[in-house]
């Protein structure tokens, strides 16, 4: 298995622990990641709001880079996944394609539309497979109750995602089960983390994050896990603000998806960048360490 690895901005910057965990897990599972320092930002949904054709053109360039290397592209961010998929879909509209091609052609960039965009979550559940993954587990996360938090753009719009049901997804829960933890079902798992309006009206964004964390907690979650570093910013980096809006303590450790997998495959907290989180993951780790000791 070999992919053009599209880390996205946050995983290369303040969310670097996501990149660390991704590389550790992929190395461990024999998934070869090829880096392309030419990749630009996906626009994060904001460039789409400001100038939708520019957004498609930037991502067409990204998709062309992978296509040129004959590789499909792997994302580790729900929003990157959404924006790159949106570009593939919009390029099916003839006027958009003509416009984008006319801008890219003078730069020697040609995109034939062949690059498949797949999130690490789907690669783990569909290509590696839950059974194969289960065999690699050395530290089953038995007893740890985890609320999956998908991130909007991994699921919706359904038409662009071509994968599982946006309304009733289960791949993340399947993955959580495969590594020995117990998935927690709650309505908030498919809802928004608030991030898109964190810079527009912060208290509202914080309230939305608090709502989802409270929901996971009410259904018994010891921790949450997300395939999106923007959700992680909202749920972890700003959890103190969410607490303030909620008016009560939340204290919810939030894992990046590959961190949770890496933990089960035997990586250390340091290798996965867990000490970089704002909300300590120690309580969740203690639970795992306790039950992982072979008897």
């Amino acid at each position: 298995m070999k992919f053009a690895y599209y880390p996205g901005c946050v995983a290369q910057e303040s969310g670097r622990e996501l990149d660390m965990a991704t590389r550790w897990v992929c190395r461990h599972l024999g998934i070869e990641l090829v880096d392309f320092p030419k990749f630009s930002c996906c626009g994060s949904g904001f460039i789409d709001e400001a100038n939708s054709v520019l957004n498609v053109a930037l991502n067409a360039r990204n998709l062309a880079i992978a296509e040129g290397a004959g590789l499909d592209l792997m994302t580790v961010c729900s929003t990157c996944q959404g924006m790159l998929s949106l570009a593939n879909r919009r390029l099916e509209e003839a006027p958009v394609k003509a416009k984008v091609d006319s801008v890219l052609a003078p730069l020697g960039i040609h995109y034939a539309g062949k690059t498949k965009v797949t999130h690490l979550l789907s690669i783990l559940t569909e290509q590696v497979g839950a059974d194969a993954l289960k065999k690699r587990v050395v530290r089953p996360l038995t007893g740890l109750k985890v609320g999956a938090f998908y991130g909007c753009h991994l699921l919706r719009p359904q038409a662009e995602m071509h994968s599982e049901s946006a309304e009733e997804p289960h791949s993340f829960e399947d993955l959580i089960s495969a590594i020995g933890a117990t998935p927690v079902m709650y309505r908030g798992r498919v809802m928004c983390c608030g991030f898109p309006i964190l810079f527009v009206k912060e208290p509202t964004a914080n309230r939305i994050a608090a709502r989802q964390i409270d929901d996971a907690k009410a259904h018994g979650a010891d921790a949450m896990a997300t395939p999106c570093p923007l959700c992680h910013i909202s749920l972890d980096s700003f959890q103190n603000k969410a607490e303030h809006e909620a008016g009560h303590e939340l204290n919810m450790p939030v894992f990046h998806l590959p961190q949770l997998v890496g933990l089960a495959l035997g990586a250390s907290a340091e290798e996965l960048g867990l000490p970089r989180h704002l909300v300590s993951t120690d309580a969740a780790l203690a639970k795992v360490a306790q039950v992982a000791v072979p008897t």
């Binding site: 949904g45 709001e49 909007c152 919706r156 719009p157 928004c192 898109p196």
Partner: peptide, 8 residues
């Protein structure tokens, strides 16, 4: 601008 573009 309070729209979250969550597509729900």
């Amino acid at each position: 601008w309070l729209c979250l573009r969550c597509h729900l």
